[in-house]
Amino acid sequence: MAIDPETVAHIARLARIKVTEDEKAALAGELSTILQWIEQLDEVDTAGVEPVSSVVDAVLPWREDRVTDGGQAEKVLRNAPEAVPGFFAVPKVVE
């Protein structure tokens, strides 16, 4: 499948990455080459094969529903580009 610059713009929007017009054209070419190479997988007969999402056979463990960590807002906020006491700060979302 060949990807055109409009498709690049669409997925870049979904991924929240700003791309320039020049980048769109270049990425369309690069992504198309990669996807065309990936399409050799169509040769593999996978009828009736269950998709594998984890190679660990174990069933995911359950644990008791109790608090084991937390109360570290101040430490966590220390890494924020912008914060006010107790909160992350972001540009205004609602007028």
Partner: peptide, 22 residues
């Protein structure tokens, strides 16, 4: 651009995300 690392400002929250990740 909200919880850690780089933030590049933008006119809206979405634009801030897009600028930061670009």
């Amino acid at each position: 651009g909200v919880r850690f690392g780089l933030r590049v400002p933008g006119g809206s929250l979405d634009e801030m995300y897009e600028n930061t990740r670009a």
